[in-house]
Design a protein around this nucleic acid. Structure first.
Lengths: 209, 209, 209, 209
DNA sequence: AATGAATGAGGATTCATTCAT
DNA sequence: AATGAATGAATCCTCATTCAT
């Protein structure tokens, strides 16, 4: 940390502006989606004129892709595979981590799902960014799954992984819609339980063959 | 009701125009969401001038709400609770019906979820329409659930219902994203299975208390 | 001419607006070129809001192409090949017609030349329009030339035609630059004379071979 | 003049930057005209940030005027009045020089003509620069003309000079439009021939009076 | 029941330019 | 001598909506 106030003030200004813009864009976009996020709105929210946004980002697409990217970063940092403990406990622990990360920084998934559902002709970079980030998550979960139950066939791994992620998405959506009426923690607990049991059963079937 | 052929002709034409507009709006909106759906786009897609759209619908909001409403109608018609058979088979059967209805007419849920995720200040009628339609679905499923396992506590019913619907949403989203890579039928089969088992277990717990 | 004022007022309004826009665009564009012609400027000049311009024309390019097209029409109407008289007199007569048409409606050529000189990457429709219109003029003059001196080789016809048109362009530019200092009529007289003599000489050479 | 190597280094670098900017501006401006030449485009083409351009040039106008000035310099250097030989040969020789200078460095005239055709309210310095440069050319040619045929009336000198320059402009434009289809050399040969004959005839007429 | 035309507000983006370093 | 960042005005164009017919 530099102690020279002048250097810090000036040098960092560019990056600070960039950060302010990203913050503003994240909050606007996660509330109103891609189309609903106008540059004017972001400009108002961050205090910088619209033209300044274009100094930091090529275009709206670039801006929102950056929002997704950063948002995924913070999100990932909050989730880390625990080791030790029994498989059941590890899975429950991860499940809790994901649930609370979703409660704390929902921007990533909310905006991502909005983009994912849209199928406009011209592929939006932001959408691609979300999908690739999601693919990465997919691979990690599949790896954990194989690790934990090596007998599972590849087909079963894929089925379970897709189910695990999809249902989590759905629960998140329910929470977004239902607000405090929805007990996300309990739902994720149930979810972890069900997926764990399903994995055991499928592993047993595979082994039997 | 007038028998004057001219009047009838007009009315029939009017209804056909209305239908054409709804068709166009449904296809555009399910691809691009609320904001991405411009009247000009709908006009181009249905061949009628923009001003004609305003003869049939009060405003854009009204149009999209109508799309949701009609879309839900067709959708509901495809799903009907089967009777007879064992509970397990009935649940599996319903599950299949829902999965194939989603494959055939995905507009309803795709557009609905898009709207649900958006949180704009001015409540959009279309969104409200979707949410109320979804509440109705919720009630029906809860009723079925109580019917099938009366021992379940109200809390358990709510948890299971929410989980059942949410995961279905998530699976639908996965299918939308993944396309043919995703085997929606198998996923719903697994889903029905898991929810059924969970219901049994929770019912047993409730009974034990 | 309809005598019903209401019909005329309303029915024609669309076309009248279109005309007003074209008039305004012609005057602005011929003064400031393609880039200098902003829709806002045209809007101010014609009294209609910018968005109305887009009702009548697809985009700026379309608008300016239409200006060129119409402008060429009026221009062509003012020039018609005279018959009777000796070749020399006919050429002199045509030459005068062209000169005075240029003096009266210079928009066409001024804007056209501006566009022709620009070589931007994305071909502008307006430019293409001018070039095709110019090709047509080229063909007509070449035909007249062949008609009048059949002995001329094709090569000579092309050389003379190009020279005739090009020098006329140049004289027009000089007049645009120099204003009243430049006696366009005398210059065209001289030009006609020189081209005529050149044609005679080249025809004689061709015949001699 | 300082001998301090640092200062010299800077100055040399500075002049090289200036040159790079001018090169970039010349290429952009000769392709897209005054309005089409944005500082951002020039910046991209020369690799220096926009703000650096403003260190070397007061504003856009200044930059483009400098382009014209330098461009005219290189151009002039390529054309030098030959002495000795007969008048006819001297004119033919000059004509060839001009034609090949136009083929090699067309930027000057292309940009100049674009500017000349525009008539915007606020006089652009770059345009004035071109016009004054052109006036100078005019004077030189008139002087040559008087020198070569002293009997010519001032009126005839002016007419011939204007015609000579204008037609040359026109031929240049034709070459710009037509590309390789247009044989600029032959056209200039013809042009020189015609002007020469016209001068002879007018001189004879003047003498006769 | 339908439509051609119009319109003000707002969309994304680029403009020429400035300023502190 | 150079530059990263900022900025207000302007760019083209689309928006949802209205209105007279």
């Amino acid at each position: 940390m530099s102690t020279d106030p002048k250097t810090r003030k000036r040098r960092v200004n560019g990056e600070e502006s960039r950060r302010k813009i990203l913050d503003a864009a994240a909050s606007v976009a996660s509330e109103r989606g891609y189309d609903g996020t106008s540059i004017a709105l972001v400009s108002k929210a961050c205090g910088l004129p619209a033209s300044s946004i274009y100094w930091h980002f090529k275009d709206k697409d670039d801006l929102i892709a950056a929002v997704i990217e950063r948002s995924f970063g913070t999100w990932l940092a909050a989730v880390n595979v625990p080791d030790g403990d029994s498989p059941r406990e590890r899975i429950a622990e991860m499940s809790m981590q994901i649930a609370s990360a979703l409660l704390e920084t929902p921007d990533f998934l909310r905006l991502g799902l909005m983009l994912a559902l849209e199928k406009r002709p011209e592929e939006v970079r932001a959408r691609t960014m979300f999908l690739s980030v999601r693919d990465e998550a997919n691979r990690r979960i599949a790896a954990t799954m194989r690790d934990f139950a090596p007998e599972l066939s590849e087909h079963a791994v894929k089925l379970l992984t897709t189910y695990a992620i999809s249902a989590a998405d759905g629960l998140f959506v329910a929470k977004e819609i239902g607000g405090d009426d929805v007990d996300l923690i309990s739902l994720f607990e149930l979810h972890a339980h069900l997926v764990y049991d399903a994995a055991l059963r499928l592993a047993a079937q595979s082994a039997a063959r």
